[in-house]
């Protein structure tokens, strides 16, 4: 069971890849699918590894992604 989760607002993403590069547990990868503006948003590849540290949320310049921990 993952400790945390990430939530992505696909339409706000501009595909810079900061979240994919700097995720400490490598939860994300850039998708080959497009959003309506033609950017490749990140895709969740290993959700179980997410620790909910929200580093992706701090890096995202477009406010399109955030991470949080599940309430216990």
């Amino acid at each position: 069971m993952a400790k945390g989760f990430v939530s992505i607002t696909v339409e706000r993403c501009k595909g810079c890849g900061f979240c994919v590069e700097f995720c400490p547990t490598h939860v994300l990868c850039l998708s080959s699918a497009f959003n309506s503006k033609g950017y490749h948003p990140p895709n969740i590849v290993s959700a179980e590894k997410c620790s909910g540290c929200d580093l992706c949320g701090m890096y995202c310049p477009d406010f399109a992604i955030f991470g949080a921990r599940y309430a216990r």
Binding site: F5, S7, T9, N43, V45, G57, A68
Partner: peptide, 25 residues
């Protein structure tokens, strides 16, 4: 790049929100 869908494979808790949003227009 290996996936073609943008589905999130789990449920996002309803009360979750981006912590930056309350500070932005």
């Amino acid at each position: 790049m290996n996936e073609t869908t943008l589905e999130i494979p789990y449920e996002i808790p309803a009360d979750a929100h981006n912590p930056v949003e309350p500070f932005l227009r």
